[in-house]
Amino acid sequence: MDSITHTLFGLALYGTVNKTDMSRRQKAALLFTTVVGSQIPDMDVISQFWDTTGRYQMWHRGISHSLLMVPVWAAFIALFVRLVFKEKGWRWFNMSLLAVFIHDTSDTFNAWGTGYFEPLSSARLTLGTIPIVDVVFWMIMLGGYWTARIIKKRYHRSPHQIYRIVWALMIVHAAAQTGQGMALLHETKDQYDQSVLAADFIPGVFTVVGKKDGIVTLQKGSIWTGLAPIAELESKEDSDLEVLFEQNPKARTLVEWSPFVVIVDDGTKLGVFDPRFYRKGASFLYEYIDIN
């Protein structure tokens, strides 16, 4: 998910707690815990500043987003709360644990995926059933925020139950999206040797990207409308990519990172791109070299 959505997740998680008997300092510590916990795995973006080998694509959302690191990040946040806010107890660790887990798990639902099982596996876990920016999540949280304000202002009651309903609705939305996407993927599984999903910004709409015998096909639609082909791409599977990898190390990383790639070898360029991000005749995840 994008940084704004992760921040909103943190605020929504903060809202689920009944803070009636909490001091101002405890509320501040809780807000810090949920928001920072919802953002801290993305600290790996700083690795791009010392990346000299083209590995950033693997480092970002890599081990920092693994299940192994969830308790490590949580312990770090809990320690900070103890030192700065002078608050002790397991509450801060548990809330941090939940916030980080939500971040890492929610990122597995979009096409970018995460290194969810690193270091046991370097493969990216990606379902492709939720877009990077999901307006439905935003609408649910915005609706919950305004409802919580009304409850607090008119009835002078803690609105934490409203935010718990917000989370229930978001889980239902994610489950519905994933169920629809998996149904489309299952429907086309016999057509391809490899296939993946990429969710559209419109809820319920997906692109199924399949590869067979060097041909990559993109089909877009929903379980209600069916799928319609939108592009067919030829991948030059017999091309020697070693010279590409030597001159552009990011290309090797992209091949490792992507479920599968399209190989371009047209006499002027040698490159690879991820077809899940193919729009208007090009993919923004494209690494190549010019051939003299």
Rank of each mutant, 00 (worst) to 15 (best):
V172W: 15
F206S: 02
V100C: 04
H6T: 04
Q180D: 10
D190A: 14
V255F: 07
L67T: 01
H156W: 02
I223Y: 05
T129C: 03
H160Q: 12
S96M: 01
G226Q: 07
P71N: 08
W138A: 15
P259R: 10
G267Y: 04
K86W: 00
R164T: 09
L185M: 03
G281I: 09
V196T: 10
A199N: 03
W224A: 15
W50V: 15
S66N: 07
F273W: 07
T33D: 06
A174N: 14
I215V: 15
S195D: 12
A198K: 13
F76V: 14
H65G: 04
T7I: 07
Y155N: 05
P41L: 07
I132L: 14
Y56P: 01
A28G: 08
E87P: 01
G179Q: 10
L30R: 02
T126F: 09
P131I: 12
Y192M: 07
P41R: 05
S195Y: 06
S47A: 05
Y192R: 12
V205Y: 13
G226I: 13
I102Y: 02
Q48F: 10
I171K: 12
A99R: 00
F32L: 00
Q39G: 03
M141C: 13
R124K: 08
T34I: 04
P159C: 09
E246L: 03
I230Y: 09
H160G: 08
S258D: 05
L98S: 08
A12L: 03
H103I: 07
I63L: 10
